[in-house]
Structures are given as structure tokens and as C-alpha cells.
Design a protein around this nucleic acid. Structure first.
Length: 269
DNA sequence: ATTATATCCTGATCGC
DNA sequence: TGCGATCAGGATATAA
């Protein structure tokens, strides 16, 4: 489902289509997305599109009447999609919101309706707090500081978004396999070498997934409605009973916090 | 304070 | 063929 690489893919693809466009009209079809209210966005231009954590951040220009810049953070959660269309198209079944632009249309489609819109007046409030694993700050030392003292099993630790941002259920299993660390190890129990592998493999796997436009396990589609291709590289996720490509042992499944974790008991320690 | 659980929602799949 | 039960998982409110 949309984790960091999928969200990065969508943000990168939307950027050239959206930056510089003027919003003619925003239509919110799902009342859940109105939450705490929707600011006036018609007439503003989109000046930036980027990823922050697992959210796509859209920045809208200030208005000539003196209203300050505006930021929208879109969280895709499970099944959300941001789809770019060169012209207004027939309504998708699960269309939840629509931006009509001076050129083209941006649709937010979300079958399960877990996705969220959050509006902000200033940039820093809109940013996800937590270490981005692709940033220059994501060093082994930084991982070490975050992990220190936690007795939480490592895989659930990786899923929380308050320390390290961007990982979800699929990449957490993949990263631990690549780093050869068992998912139920207490987060604070890693030694220096393991922390180093965790930091390096997290970056390597996420970058490789971005190159492949993410993983489509069931629902994900990018900004052009195309599926990702990283699923071909998955080493453990959804491979219970199959052989580990590294050591030939059988891939096993474990449930942690009601989520499936996949790992290899042969080469993860 | 930290960690576990229930909840939101829909569609696909499974067993009978 | 139909039908209810189960599963999928991101994040958070609530419980322990």
C-alpha cells in the first residue's frame, strides 16, 4: 500500500503537471474529507508538490488580497490515489475530491475512504515530524539515537511514524530481511553493525523501489493510473512457504500487532 | 511512559 | 450460486 516509495512516485509525477497551475474549483465529494473545514483555494496557484513522510504536500500561493500561502497534506492511507488527467474525465466510482485546474484535473480516488486532507497555513506545521530515511540526516548514528532504550519489537517499531517516517508493512519486512535482522528483536538491542545495516538497507530498498515506481500489491496506482513494478523484487513479503533466495530456507509468517510480518529464519538473526 | 487493541472502510476471497 | 466470515493494512483513539 502507499508507503514512502509510492508517495514519492506520485509526488514526483504530479510535480510537472501541477506546478504553475491555477485552481478553478475544488469539489469535495466525501464529507469525511471536509473534517475541520476547507479553506478557500480557488484562484490560487499550485507552487510546489512534494512528499513529506507518507503524505503528498501541495503548496498553494498566497492571494492578492493578502491571504497567506496554504498547504494541503494528502494522506493516501490504504487505497487513496491522486490521479492526474489532462482534461475532465468521466467520474470514477470512488472519486472523493476533484481539483479543476486551468489546465487539467487532479482527482482523489479512495475506495476505502481512509485517506485524509489536512490544511495548514504554514510550511513547518505541514511537514511530517520524524526522520526521513532518505535524508542526509538519516545516518547510522541517528538511527542509533532513535532506537536506544526501546524494548518494542523491531518490526512494529519501524511502522511507527513518530521517529522514522515512511515505512509500512511491506517495506518493513523487506528491509529487515535485507539487513538480516529478525523482526521480533527488541529495537534497542541492535549492535553497531546491525544499526549500520538497517540504515543502509532502508535507504537502498526505498531508493530501488522509487526507481521502480513503487510496489503494487493490490491497489496502488501512480499519478498516471499505472501500477508499480517493485513487487517483482519482493524477497519475503507474501512469500510464506516459499524459499529464501539468499539461503534457501523457508520464508515464514508471523503476526505482530495484527499485521503479517514475513521473514527468513535461516539468514535473519 | 510504553505497548496492545479496536476502529475506521470497502472489496476480494474463502469455506460451507 | 449465494452468503456470511475473514483478511488486507495506515494511523489513531483508547485501554491496559
Amino acid at each position: 500500500m502507499p508507503e514512502l516509495p509510492e508517495v514519492e512516485t506520485v509526488a514526483r509525477q504530479l510535480h510537472p503537471h501541477l506546478v504553475g497551475r491555477r485552481v478553478k474549483r475544488l469539489t469535495i465529494l466525501d464529507p469525511r474529507l471536509r473534517g475541520g473545514g476547507t479553506p478557500r483555494v480557488a484562484g490560487r496557484r499550485i507552487v510546489a508538490v512534494r512528499r513529506s513522510g507518507k503524505r503528498v504536500l501541495l503548496e498553494f500561493s498566497a492571494t492578492q488580497r493578502g491571504r497567506s500561502a496554504l498547504y494541503l497534506a494528502v494522506h493516501l492511507r490504504m487505497t487513496g490515489r491522486l490521479l492526474w488527467l489532462p482534461r475532465a474525465a468521466s467520474e470514477e466510482r470512488h472519486l472523493r475530491a476533484r481539483f479543476d485546474l486551468d489546465r487539467g484535473q487532479l482527482q482523489f480516488i479512495d475506495t476505502r475512504r481512509f485517506g485524509t486532507f489536512d490544511w495548514y497555513r504554514d510550511a513547518s506545521a505541514a511537514e511530517s515530524s520524524g526522520l526521513d530515511p532518505l535524508s542526509a540526516e538519516a545516518t547510522p548514528a541517528a538511527y542509533g539515537r532513535l532506537l536506544a532504550g526501546s524494548r518494542q519489537p523491531l518490526k512494529p517499531w519501524l511502522l511507527r511514524q513518530d521517529r522514522l517516517v515512511g515505512l509500512g508493512n511491506i517495506y518493513a519486512s523487506e528491509i529487515l530481511h535485507a539487513a538480516r535482522i529478525l523482526p521480533d528483536r527488541p529495537a534497542g538491542s541492535l549492535d553497531r553493525a546491525e544499526i549500520g545495516r538497517l540504515a543502509r538497507k532502508t535507504r537502498a530498498i526505498l531508493e530501488r523501489a522509487i526507481v521502480n515506481c513503487g510496489t503494487t500489491f493490490s491497489d496502488f496506482q501512480d499519478a498516471h493510473g499505472v501500477e508499480g513494478s517493485y513487487q517483482a523484487f519482493l524477497a519475503v513479503y507474501d512469500r510464506e512457504g516459499q524459499r529464501c533466495r539468499r539461503c534457501r530456507s523457508e520464508i515464514r509468517r508471523l503476526v505482530q500487532q495484527q499485521r503479517s510480518t514475513y521473514y527468513c529464519g535461516g539468514c535473519q538473526h
